[in-house]
Design a protein around this nucleic acid. Structure first.
Lengths: 224, 224
DNA sequence: TCCGGTATTATTGTATACAACAATACCGGA
DNA sequence: TCCGGTATTGTTGTATACAATAATACCGGA
């Protein structure tokens, strides 16, 4: 309908569906059919179809006989992802320490400063988003698209669980200070220190997640 | 035209293009336009378009103003990928040791036996393909789709370089015997040993790759 | 009532039509 | 000759049409 747009309908729909699925709007087990989405989004099948295919490729949905079956991830998957990140992100941080320009490091510092600011304010939405940006930038600055392509899907998929790692002001401040340690190592071009600091940060986030999951287990962990 | 098919045209085209790009048929920097591919493949734009979008998502191509720009990967990317695999595949092998059924382990053994057989024969095409299958099965049997989703793209992207790791009979036999070490650890349900054996195997493959790249450097490494 | 077969419907895969944008080529004027 | 503007062409994004399959619902017979 609307014609020339900066970003395509397919992209918008992909992002929206990805976000809705990973944040729990469409719970695991839901069925998404092209036509139903067309109707609710007011577009033709073509962009919806493209978005669904891309979601399927990332195993966020899979074709389930009738429509597309929403997969999302389990707590067990989240634990695996944290372990993978623990093994990989240090590598990315080290590469970033080796590759990033001073301007890029300055922009990382900006992110950390802001995150710290909002952490002290208790604005966990902002903190989560800035936390996300920080990691995303590390992937980008590491000097090869391989880092981004590998780590970004992992990061995206645990969105639903990430709030657990910054849910209280204390955790948010801790996360921010860990980020600062990584940043400082990068800024001083110390690859080994950057790797170590990042690995420690992920390990820390992972243990915050495990605490959260243990809590959830007690109360029942069903729908949110 | 032809109507009911087990696998869709889009899937076939995706696989074909992926394979052609990663094995060097379309060299880095080529431009693929939808229409040109339609003409050469004899299908409409829809499946071609879907295949290209999926390739773009995996950063095998990217939109480059006019058509899709073929990216492929550099030797530097390959080195990064081997380091990532070194950090991750041990984890997958350990998980497989914990999850795989006896039947699944038997099918792994079959693959290793065959690989050994063809290695001794010097059939490096077969060896490469069986080597690939072995790793792919580890990803699948590790118990979470996260392993497959993360490792398979890495494995796929280095296709062009993998021949370097099994190019001679000696290397092929070495690779097969390393696989057997991994398999034995898995079969005896020893997760730590499986991780160690797999990590050693990737490290070994990586050094075989580095040797190859160093050779290439001497002769000129441009087009193949 | 229950079972089997047929008809209808829902859904997807593919092809094509159309609109908009971008680049380029061509033409006229200075 | 060179520059600017317009027209044309090539390319993509989106919508729709059509074909084929699979599932389901319905109906008749035992």
């Amino acid at each position: 309908m609307i014609t020339h747009r900066p970003t395509s309908l397919a992209d918008q729909i992909f992002e929206r569906l990805e976000n809705d699925i990973l944040s729990g709007v469409y719970p695991r087990g839901s069925i998404l059919t092209e036509m139903a989405l067309c109707a609710s989004l007011g577009v033709s099948r073509t962009p919806v179809r493209e978005a669904l295919k891309r979601l399927a490729q990332e195993h966020i949905v899979e074709e389930g006989g009738k429509g597309m079956l929403v997969l999302s991830i389990t707590a067990g998957d989240a634990e695996i992802i944290y372990e993978m990140r623990e093994r990989l992100e240090g590598m990315a941080a080290a590469a970033t320490a080796g590759h990033a320009t001073e301007e890029e490091i300055a922009s990382l510092r900006e992110l950390v400063d802001l995150q710290d600011f909002y952490a002290k304010r208790g604005d966990s939405e902002k903190v989560k988003s800035l936390d996300s940006e920080f990691h995303k930038n590390i992937y980008r600055l590491a000097g090869s698209a391989v880092y981004y392509d590998t780590l970004m899907p992992l990061h995206t998929k645990i969105q639903k669980f990430r709030k657990a790692t910054v849910e209280s002001t204390g955790k948010a401040e801790q996360s921010a200070s860990e980020h600062r340690a990584v940043l400082d190592a990068i800024a001083s071009r110390d690859e080994a220190a950057a790797e170590k600091a990042m690995t420690a940060h992920i390990a820390s986030a992972r243990s915050r997640l495990l605490d959260y999951l243990r809590q959830q287990e007690d109360t029942e962990n069903g729908n949110d």
